[in-house]
């Protein structure tokens, strides 16, 4: 690692000020720390968000949304987001137990790894990403692999998830990294179905419009019969080519529909 200063503010205000002075946020660090070890980043100053009580916790707002503070760990979400079982289940299977102790929802969404789990939940639920500056709809937030609507120094403070009637997250893991090779989040709301896919695309998490239309009309796995994902924008790597990933999108989507609860 290159040398850097590490600051540990205890209020959001202090964190925002430290960020304005040229820091980069450090949340759970489960992606950032390996990146730093490989000397792929040279941040100069890191602002740890770990010691800010107001950035932690799970609650329900007046609209019935599950609201998760930005620095809430996956482990906490798994235990406390019980009102949204698909989300709790997703959080309970991110990485491994130690990763879930440290990794946070804000960190995951800010990083927007194309194979991360949380982006699928946020996009698939139509969540709202709140920052120290504004609120961003998930549909506007994800802007491609590792790219988001966040500006420099902007901190994810909270994520608000509308709770669907039923939902499920089906993950097919890449056996080395244990990240999703392809994972699909399906959520059925009163006004339609959202289908978000992670792990598959070179443009990061995305919604599968054709599947959403088919499932909005008829919420059954068989509604997806005959729908084929275009392999063109799929990721191709050691663990699967474009055709395989495109195929898995369909398989995992169907399984998510079957398991939606």
């Amino acid at each position: 690692m290159y040398a850097f200063d590490l600051e540990r503010p205890t209020t959001l205000d202090a964190a925002v000020k430290a960020m304005a002075a040229g820091g980069q946020p450090l949340s759970g660090g489960q992606t950032l720390i390996p990146t730093l070890k490989a000397r792929l980043a040279d941040p100069g100053k890191l602002i740890s968000l770990h010691s800010i009580p107001e950035l932690k916790g799970v609650s329900t707002d007046a609209e019935g949304r599950i609201c998760i503070k930005g620095a809430t760990t996956h482990g906490t979400v798994a235990a406390e987001a019980v009102a949204y079982p698909a989300l709790a289940h997703l959080a309970a299977r991110i990485g491994d137990p130690a990763v879930r102790t440290r990794g946070t929802i804000g960190g995951s969404l800010a990083n927007n790894d194309p194979s991360a789990c949380y982006p699928a939940a946020a996009l698939g639920s139509g969540a709202t990403i709140c920052t120290d500056r504004r609120e961003i709809a998930a549909d506007d937030y994800f802007q491609g692999m590792f790219a988001t609507a966040l500006e420099d120094g902007e901190i994810v403070t909270e994520v608000k998830f509308p709770v669907p009637q039923v939902a499920a997250y089906e993950k097919f893991i890449q056996p080395a990294s244990r990240f999703p090779l392809v994972a699909v989040f399906v959520a059925k709301f009163a006004d339609g179905v959202r289908v978000a896919i992670t792990g598959a695309s070179e443009t990061g998490v995305f919604r599968w419009a054709e599947a959403e239309a088919a499932l909005s009309a008829r919420f059954e796995a068989s509604a997806l019969d005959g729908l084929a994902m275009d392999p063109d924008h799929m990721i191709a790597d050691l663990h699967g080519d474009k055709a395989y990933r495109a195929h898995l999108c369909g398989v995992m989507a169907k399984r998510a529909v079957m398991h939606a609860a």
Binding site: P175, A176, S177, R178, D237, L238, H239
Partner: peptide, 16 residues
């Protein structure tokens, strides 16, 4: 080397 770390070289885990 494409499989240069445990991110791409799949080691058997207990679940496997």
């Amino acid at each position: 080397l494409l499989s240069a770390s445990y991110m791409d070289y799949a080691m058997p885990r207990a679940l496997d």
